[in-house]
Amino acid sequence: MSYIIASDLNQALQILRDSKGQARVIAGATDLFLQTLPAELVDLAELYETTQLEESGGLLSIGSAVTHASAARSLLIRSKAAALAEACAMIGSPQVRNIGTIGGNVANAAPAADAAVALVALGAKAVITDIEGQTREEAVEELYAGYNRSVIDSSSEIIGRLVFKPCAAGEGSAFMRFAPRRALALPLVNVAARIRVSGRRIEAVRMVAAPVKPAPTRLFETEALLQEIIPGHEIWAKVEEAAASEVEVRGSILRCSGQYRRHLVGTLAERVLKEAYQRACASDGGET
């Protein structure tokens, strides 16, 4: 096996082209030793294109090789995509966050990947370039082919960055997880939400939960409950019920029963929506 640290995106694509399916791209490589190794690895962690984090043209653009630690620290992300900063701060351990990347979190297609859950709630799209030089955008939730299987073919496609609209005034986002331990733990459930308000009325809402299906899952019925209303006690209680009943969840000996996981989805959905709502209201009228 050979290992190449690519110096720019074109070089990385060239290597993939030349290797005819024998090479694969990686970034943080934290899951590398858990898999069978290909003949060639192309490391994207040092590319200019994949390590930038910026706001331009009305979009937040996060390079796929931005680490969880830098995303969690970034003032830009903390102020305009709080859910993502919160998610990145809870992944694994400091050591894993220092090397694991946002793009890897998406491309690995783990069903409870914290960053991916936040990205879906934020409405993020992956900007993907293939070896033909074609670039396309796909919603993060569309990138899942099954449990731990991505539609991205890492021998011919590269996620360059993830883009979404930053939270503006009147918008708020939040992420929460429930894990059996406060560090070094996979979550039993993780949720994220993004809400836009006008006055105290909810104008738009995206609510995501995992692990429910292979991909982070939008809770459309729960979202519908909150559209165009000023939420009060009754609604929040309904939100919990709706979120819990909207999901099909599985249990496992290792983690918890399906019934309990369903209950957690409900509780966390309500909590994360409330938090996102409060943040949205607080930022309405110029406060951040």
């Binding site: 059996p180 331990r181 406060r182 070094l184 996979l186 000996i253 290792l254």
Partner: peptide
């Protein structure tokens, strides 16, 4: 609060430090 072997058909299910969870500094 955290620890305990889990078995399935005589096989240990939580045979790693990720799944057999001892307390971390935050716990």
């Amino acid at each position: 609060c955290y620890e305990g072997y889990l078995f399935e058909g005589g096989r240990v299910v939580n045979s790693s430090l990720a799944d057999y969870r001892i307390p971390t500094a935050l716990d």
